[in-house]
Design a protein around this nucleic acid. Sequence first.
DNA 1: AGAATTACCTGAGCGC
DNA 2: TGCGCTCAGGTAATTC
Length: 267
Amino acid sequence: MPELPEVEVTRRRLEPELVGRNFTEVVLRVTKLRLPVPVELARILPGLAVRGIERRGKYLLFDCGHGWLLIHLGMTGFLRLLRSSTPPGKHDHLDFIFDGGQLLRFHDPRKFGIVTWFTGDPQEHPLLVNIGPEPLTDAFTGEYLFTATRKRNGALKQLIMDSSVVAGVGNIYANEALFHSGIRPDRGAGTLTVQECTLLASVIRTVLEESIGEGSTCRVAEDTVAYYPQNFTVYGRGGEQCSSCGSRLEEIRLGNRSTVFCRICQV
DNA sequence: AGAATTACCTGAGCGC
DNA sequence: TGCGCTCAGGTAATTC
């Protein structure tokens, strides 16, 4: 499940391989994703060069000069960089072929991903316009989080997973950040003190940065640009011992999402 | 306005 | 062996 760190690692791996390359061909095998993939991509992209690859939240933005190729990996999507002759397998929905012989392949069993094309200002795109501050920038501070939590009675975890509050934090890193902050996920967001908001904002940033660091250095198969971290402190560990106090980690559901925390260490 | 719920999709795991 | 069920979860749309 790609969250901000996985998308950022993907971006960093693709950037040196694809920036400056020209699209030569686009193959559309499956176009029914969360949004329909525009079939015009096959005639728009060939001849255009990748000028840069950016990220906003969990969205990848390929700057193509005349417009933008927008990719979201959804739940199960990933990108691979292959030689252009590699035959496709199951769920290999789209191929982007470049003049250097690279093949960027979009694979997504659950089809929750998005691949689309737009022109104009990315900040005004409907999918991007309501995304909150990037957690790795100075815009995301404890002060900001404190303001955002006022008069919010819902669970804190759901608030930090709300992309309009902060970009790119999904279920995994929400669980992790709350554990490392010592704050319960089911706390009413509005009950946080400014000190707790400052700590939480800082921990969210650290958790994401550490994961990006691991992803950037971990060894992966030659063709793989996806990166899925495996070891978490609480996520996926309901019933196991808390790494800090040894008590049994609690697993509950918040907003129909699996939520794991320690009743002793988190208040 | 904010909160809760639903839809989208497929593979894995489980009980029978 | 296989059927039916549940779960995984990002996000937008819908409803209250």
